[in-house]
Design a binder for these strands. Structure first.
Lengths: 207, 207
DNA sequence: CGCGCTGTTGGCCCTAGGGCCAACTCGACA
DNA sequence: TGTCGAGTTGGCCCTAGGGCCAACAGCGCG
């Protein structure tokens, strides 16, 4: 079914893929295995709910680099690392780059499942944050340039007549744009407009 | 002088304290050394600009526990760990708990100084965020209970007459409170008020 | 008991916001 | 060339916000 959480397993050791894959499938996860980081990267679909479990040392593209590549590609895929040999600096870099966990092989089932549990939670948070941001940006995209311009002034707390002065027009025109902004964005108070703008990263706090 | 950045060195090995202390003092840092975590904790002053460099394994209270104790005490002191023996799970927990870095002994001077550099940056960010939050809360504390109540409704985007209905009073009274809120908080537009409330964690986005 | 703070309310008046209808200009597009 | 969307503007009118002055009630404190 579609509601399963997918685990993308990337490891050049087929034995690991098999063993971990079996464990996770038994737990109800949808598992997709890759023996090469490139294969994973090119076929990767950020829309699928899930997390990635990456081997640290792989030929060509190591786990860390793969993590960078993912985030550079705009994906917020949650990542769990597996490593064969102890290496503190690497674990520090991975965690600093936002990894969920950094586990050593042979991996303890409990630890791995706990990490995946955290990944599920993080993934859900990312998705809900993105959904809300996406809906805001979609509505913002419906505004004409002039309307957006008026909006930033309104969010900055300026009066219609001041906005009119700044934009080289008259108060009446500003009122019209302002009304259209409120209606297009589906908000009914300036307070809501300010919060919406805040989430979209529109900084109105200019003195 | 007072503008120096202080490094709190905590390690039960006096040799480490001496060696690292010398290095850092030569770089212009104000160094305070502690051979016991307790001694550091009881004399700790969160107001001092600086960071802590903690040994991971210490008697009674290990580095991780000390980090927890610091944050449980409300301090946001930036922490850098030093460890004698490799231990990935520990480094992962430390990083997840917000450590700046997790370095292995013997520590490389460059790495240590780089970590302290990041700590300086993080400390400055914490302080400016706290200062801004503190000033907001100080102003918020000047409001009477009724004024705060009116404020939450205003931030929620409600009209004066609706607020009056909710509070069982008349519109005129709400206007007065509202005016006093704006003046006490030093804001001149609802937009600014909303942003201020947002920073203070007052959630006005109730449908 | 009188003072001060908080909360309340009324009156008066002015400014700001905003809905509705109509009209006009311009550039793009079929 | 005619239509359409975006941007403009005017008039009319009503609601919302808010300043200023005055007044009154309840409460805690010296």
């Amino acid at each position: 079914m579609d509601s399963a959480f997918t685990v993308f397993l990337v490891d050049d050791d087929a034995g690991v893929l098999k063993a971990v894959g079996r464990l996770l499938r038994a737990r109800g996860y949808d598992v997709r295995s890759f023996t090469s980081p490139q294969a994973f990267l090119v076929s990767h679909d950020a829309l699928i709910r899930g997390c990635a479990i990456l081997d640290v040392s792989m030929p060509d593209l190591d786990g860390l680099a793969l993590q960078q590549a993912l985030s550079a590609g705009g994906s917020q895929r949650s990542v769990i690392f597996l490593t064969g040999k102890d290496d503190i600096p690497t674990s520090v870099r991975a965690m600093r780059a936002g990894a969920i966990d950094f586990l050593t092989k042979p991996v303890n089932d409990t630890d791995l499942l706990a990490a995946i549990g955290r990944a599920e939670k993080e993934d859900a948070e990312h998705r809900s944050a993105n959904a809300s941001l996406g809906s805001i940006q979609a509505r913002l995209a419906m505004l004409t340039p002039r309307e957006r311009e008026v909006m930033t002034h309104v969010v900055a707390g300026r009066l219609n007549k001041q906005i009119a002065g700044d934009l080289g027009t008259v108060e009446k025109t500003v009122k019209v744009h302002r009304g259209r902004v409120m209606s297009k964005l589906g908000v009914r108070s300036v307070a809501d407009l300010v919060r919406l703008a805040e989430k979209a990263g529109i900084d109105g706090s200019r003195p």
